[in-house]
């Protein structure tokens, strides 16, 4: 188990974002974390990325707590736009390169090309779709072992979504790389997700293998999401 979460609780002033969450993620597979806005998906991702601290509970990645060494093997794409707006696309890639082992500058440029991003434009001046595509360029410019994608398609125009999904499908190193992807647009990633966890109000309400759930319930992940969300 490449990710182990045990009894995870996270409190924010006035509310509990995560309640007694426990699950594991298998290496080399795609785990979908599905839930409405406010279900705790983003909080979970922030904790897995090591930028938010649990209130209670244990998280182990690669068998250890989250240290800088662990972070060097994880690519995190948050829901927000996290890059320095004053940097150009090129400067951003040059900035991130030294931090992540195996960063391939040529690959980065190829992806920038594929994503049709202007290298010399400031990140702050990019459109929403371009910003979303930039995150994917960053994620796949180096051979991370875990990719955490928090709402990679949210609020993004359909052509950009297509490009992002295209890159995802061709770049995913199945069997070696583990992807956790969260979304509330379930139908878009219906065919990509292998294991699934449904979150509601900070707890898991349903989980399992996607194909197994389909067989048992005769429903798509999307339909199950509708059911579970109500």
């Amino acid at each position: 188990m490449i990710i182990e979460v045990e009894g995870l609780w996270k409190r924010y002033p006035g509310t509990w974002a995560l309640r007694d969450l426990s699950f594991t993620a298998k290496k080399g597979r795609v785990l979908g974390i599905l839930g409405e806005n406010g279900s705790g998906k983003s909080t979970l991702f922030r904790i897995l990325a090591g930028i938010t601290r649990p209130t209670r509970g244990k998280v182990r990645i690669f068998g250890t707590p989250i240290t800088p060494t662990v972070k060097a093997r994880i690519a995190y794409l948050p829901e927000v736009q996290p890059y320095y707006p004053w940097m150009t696309v090129r400067e951003l890639l040059e900035f991130l390169a030294p931090f992540y082992p195996g960063w391939d500058p040529q690959k980065a440029l190829n992806l920038v090309d594929f994503m049709q991003l202007p290298l010399e434009k400031k990140v702050g001046d990019l459109s929403k779709g371009q910003k979303g595509r930039l995150k994917v360029v960053v994620a796949f410019s180096w051979p991370s072992e875990i990719v955490l994608m928090d709402e990679p398609l949210g609020g993004i125009d359909p052509p950009s979504r297509k490009r992002i999904l295209g890159a995802l499908f061709s770049e995913f190193r199945y069997g070696e790389q583990t992807i956790l992807i969260s979304t509330h647009l379930v139908s878009e990633v219906e065919e990509f997700i292998e294991d699934v966890i449904y979150l509601k109000d900070g707890s898991i309400v349903l989980s399992g293998h996607a194909d197994q759930l389909r067989e048992e319930r005769g429903k798509s992940l999307s339909e199950l999401f509708e059911e579970v969300a109500t």
Partner: peptide
């Protein structure tokens, strides 16, 4: 190949492998 079919069909290569 697994990857080719996955790409063609727009599906996770692990599923093709299975």
């Amino acid at each position: 190949s697994v990857r080719d079919l996955a790409k063609e069909m727009g599906v996770n290569p692990n599923t093709v492998a299975r």
